[in-house]
Structures are given as C-alpha cells and as structure tokens.
Design a protein around this nucleic acid. Structure first.
Length: 511
RNA sequence: GGAGCGUUGGUCAAGGGGUUAAGACACCUCCCUUUCACGGAGGAAUCACGGGUUCGAUUCCCGUACGCUCUACCA
C-alpha cells in the first residue's frame, strides 16, 4: 500500500524564527505540495527551560506572512493532535518504558554532579569529551548496575531519573538520506542519549520518533546538524518495531555567515547589519528587539524566493520563482549538499525584482502603512499607486518608498542648497521667476508632463541657459535633494500650486 | 581528540570523462539619462592539493589539506 506523503513543520519556540528555520519549513511545504501531501505544524517545546512565551504565536505569524500556512491555525486542527510536545508527555513515557522492558534502554539515577565527576575522571588527551556510553555506563548508577530490587525501590521513592538508550556495541547503522545518499555510522561512537528527562519531558530524540510514527510522517526534513544523531533515531524506529514506517530523511545544508565560516546566527545579523529573522522579534526575557525581513520592507514573495534558491536550483537559468512555480519546479535531488553563505546584497536584489514584478496594488497597502506611520496620510489611493509606479524602479525595499516618494505629499524637510549655490547666479534666479509666471497660466488638463517640459525648455532657450544646468536646481527645489524620478513627472503630479510654492521657497533660500 | 558531512570565480551556482567551464549578485568600463535608479553593451575573476584509472580528468577512485556539524537531562 502506498503511503501518503506527510511532512511536518517543527520549529522549536525558543525565540525568533531564523532563515534556516523558514527554509526548512519551505522545503517541507514545497515537497508536500508537489506530491499532493499533507503537512503538519508541530511545536517542539520539549525544552521548557528555553521555551519562550509568545514564540509559538510568533512562529505562526511568520509562516502566515510567508504564505506557508493558512490563516486558521493548523496547530489545533488535524487528526493527529495534540501537536505540542508538552501536551503529549504521557505518550512518550509509555514508549520509553517499553524500551526499558525490551532491554534497549535503562533507568539512570546519576545526578548532574555525578555526570560532571565522571567526565572529569575519564577526560584525557585522547578523549577530551568522555561520554555516557558503553565504556562508562557500567560504572554509573543505573538499572544496568543496580539490582532489580534497588531499582524498584528507587523508582518507588520517586528518585529523580532519566531513561537512556542502550547503544549497541559495534554495529554499523546505515540509512539512505534523500540528499546525501547512503550514510553509515558505527553504533559504538554514539553515547547513550537521554530519551526521557528527569522532568518527564522527552528529549528531541524520543519525541521526533514517536511523533513521526503516530502522525504517519513519511518524509522528515531537518538541518544538517542532526545528521550525527540519525543513528539514535534509526535505532529507536527499529526497537519500537516501526522500521517499516520510518520516514525518508533529508538533512538540509546549513546557511552560513557571509564572512568567515560557521552557521549563521542572530549575532551575525546584528554585527553585519542585516536581518536573520523573518519578522521582528521581541524577546520577552530581556525586551531585546531584533528586526525582521518583513519590517525592513521585504516582500514575502522575495523572501521565500531568495531562501528557496539558497541551497536549491532547478538546473536552469531561472532565478525568480513564485510560490506556485517553486512547487512546480521543486525537486529534492537538486538540493545541494554543501552549506551556502548568506548574501544580503543578493537578498535585496530579489526584493527589488519582486517589487518590479508584482502589481503595485499587491503591496501598496504595506507602503501606505509605512507612510502613515511616518506622518503622511494618503487620501487618494489611485494617485498614490500612480506615484509608487513612477518610483518603484529605484526602490529596493518597501521602506525606500518614503525617501523616494515622500516629497509628493509634503514639502521637502530640508533643501540641499549647497549643491545649487556654487553655480547659482542672477540669470538663473530670473529664469525661475519667469517660469513661475508661465506655469501659472497652465490650467486644468494643460498641466501635464509634455507641456511643463516644453515650457521649461522654451524659457531656458529664451534666457540662453542650458537646460541641463537648470534641471538640477529645479529638482532640488521640488524634492529637496538629488533623487527621485524625472523632474517634469514630479511637477505634473504635485500640481501647479505646489510646484510654484516649492520654486518660490527655493528662490527665497538662494538669495 | 573522534565521527559524519562537505570543497567549481569574492558570493550564490550550472555542468559531470573531450565544453571557448553557463547564468546571477557584487566589482570595473562604456552607452542611455545633465539627479539617482532602471535598461543596454562589454570586462576582470573559478574547478583546494597530490597520486592513481584513462588516449584524455574539473568530472571516477584513493590519499592529504581545509571548512563545517555533532560529540548536553539544547534542539
């Protein structure tokens, strides 16, 4: 019987959702969609000490912004709930106990101090990080070394304990990774990982296996950092008797820091001046705010597109993909094996391309919000869109529009008169005076780009001044600096009154 | 230290025994534009090293180097 493709989104809510996390979710999503499968959003909150208040909602909001999950929360829906690991505690205990009974796991009563002591005792030049493994387990306080009675007694007395897997001696464990092909490990080299913690919560190792089985997950994608732990998971599937149902694993390459080497971290973003989180994240523990791609003015389309091709491509020259196109083109065998350095310049390029590609109406409301936050009220939406259309070629981020188009709605705050003054003279002042008078005569429909330009050039000719020498002063008077679209376009859009007002203000400043 | 994984221009990368080794970002030059962009034309720049296998390796194999990840009652 063919198994339905079912993948999971399993972010851990320990604060923020970084690029790698979103990309893992994205590949999960693309693969599921491509194969008409389901996906499940599961919250891995097994680590209560790092679990952060509000992070769960944050993760959902990020994924909604990206368009990867529908508006109604999938955490609470679906047939395989509950989806929070903290709500599944009894389930994990049951399987952990089962493993103990089968002899594949054991109770360990060692205190944290005991572990430290063991590590110190065993530490040597050739073994800098001693493990709780077949070499040391028989010297520890566990159900392998204690008598059955003692163990029963300790359990009876609620003595704090964990359940650890008993790694077999010298077995070769092999599995096929969707990206890397056949990978094998020697079981002796992995330690006896804790499966169930003293607080009754499972570790990731137990939880993923149990959840993946119970939720009938067919494919599991996760970061490459999990590869060394795969043998533990493999063994668990085997010991629990579920080997036939084990999902296909894909260990995704890491996203690396742009400079130097190593995994990209939040700190790198702060240090180098770019975001690493999808959205703004305010850590409730210290009120520290980390800016996200969304708030910086990224389009979700661009964000996803950029992430998708950082580690995957379809073998063609295409670089711009919509979500639909990604679904159509995505294939796991084109996912790279090696990590990729994140390049913020390229990320911005993607955003610029998407600003140009998407209709203005699909993002104008976001820009409108930004304008309003900066004190500009938009009353005429049509005109607003017209303006955005005019300046979008020179905007890389949504937040750039304020700089590129704010002057359409308010007089320039400052005038870069230093750029005019060196070449300013009486003749030019007279030109602008005359220009104002002439411009005032243009009424109604006559106030358009072509007429303004003609008038401007005619007047320049009459005064025998080169048009080029007059355009820069005109621009600066209108917008305040050396930026913005064509001067005549600007004049046409801001209207007679405002144009003349700005010229007069400029002239007054240049006297 | 050990294990696993990786290594094509500065970055992202295509290709995968015979190629002028695609393309994109960034960079440089020029054109367009008397702002800045956009757009157009061009340029510089790459197969980590050493051995095999082969008529022929960037491509396959083995080593070496380098990098990364893991080596927790974190995920």
């Amino acid at each position: 019987m063919e198994k339905k493709v079912r993948v999971r989104f399993a972010p851990s809510p320990t604060g923020g959702l970084h690029l790698g996390g979103v990309r893992t979710v994205l590949y999960n999503y693309l693969f599921a969609k491509k194969n008409n499968g389901d996906f499940i959003l599961r919250i891995e909150d097994t680590d209560q000490t790092r679990f952060v208040e509000g992070a769960e909602d944050y993760i959902q909001e990020c994924l909604k912004w990206c368009g990867l999950i529908p508006d109604e929360s999938p955490i609470h829906g679906g047939a395989y709930g509950p989806y929070r690991q903290s709500e599944r505690k009894p389930i994990y205990r049951q399987y952990a106990e089962q493993l103990v009974q089968q002899g594949h796991a054991y109770y360990a009563f060692d205190t944290p101090d005991d572990l430290v002591t063991m590590r110190q005792k065993l530490q040597s030049e050739t073994n800098p990080t001693p493990q709780y493994n077949l070499a040391s387990r028989m010297q520890m306080r566990n159900s392998l070394t204690l008598s059955a009675d003692e163990v029963a007694n300790l359990l009876q007395q609620n003595e704090p304990h964990v359940i650890r897997i008993k790694m077999p001696d010298n077995e070769t464990l092999t599995f096929t990774d969707m990206i890397r092909g056949e990978v094998s490990f020697n079981s002796s080299l992995t330690d006896d990982k804790v499966l169930l913690k003293a607080d009754g919560m499972p570790t990731y190792h137990l939880a993923v296996v149990v959840d993946d089985y119970l939720m009938k997950i067919s494919h599991a994608f996760r970061g490459e950092e999990w590869l060394p732990n795969a043998p533990v998971h493999l063994l668990l599937w085997k010991y629990l008797g579920w080997e036939a149902d084990m999902p296909l694993y894909a260990h995704l390459p890491l996203i690396l820091k742009p400079d130097g080497n190593g995994k990209l971290s939040k700190r790198d973003g702060d240090r180098l001046g770019f975001p690493v989180f999808a959205m703004n994240w305010k850590d409730p523990r210290n009120s520290e705010l980390t800016t996200g791609f969304r708030e910086l003015g990224f389009l979700p389309e661009a964000f996803l597109n950029m992430l998708a091709v950082l580690g995957w491509n379809d073998g063609t020259e295409q670089e711009l993909y919509s979500l639909e196109e990604l679904i159509a083109h995505f294939s796991m065998d084109h996912v790279h094996k090696n990590g990729a350095k994140f390049n913020y310049e390229k990320a911005k390029w993607f955003n610029h391309e998407w600003i140009k590609k998407l209709p203005v109406s699909s993002w104008s409301s976001t820009v409108k919000l930004d304008f309003e936050a900066k004190g500009i009220t938009i009353t005429d939406d049509e005109k607003f869109k017209q303006i955005l259309e005019l300046v979008k070629d020179r905007c890389t981020l949504l937040n750039d529009f304020y700089q590129q188009a704010g002057f359409f709605f308010q007089l320039p705050q400052t005038i870069d008169d230093a750029s005019i003054k060196p070449k300013w003279n009486v003749e030019k002042a007279m030109f602008f005076d005359i220009l104002c008078e002439k411009l005032m005569l243009l009424e109604g429909e006559e106030w358009n780009v072509a007429n303004i330009e003609t008038l401007f050039k005619q007047t320049a000719e009459e005064k025998s001044i080169k048009v080029g020498e007059l355009q820069l002063p005109f621009r600066i008077m209108l917008v305040g600096g050396k930026f913005g679209p064509g001067v005549f376009d600007i004049a046409a859009l801001i209207g007679t009154k405002s144009t003349i007002e700005r010229i007069r203000k400029g002239l007054a400043l240049l006297v």
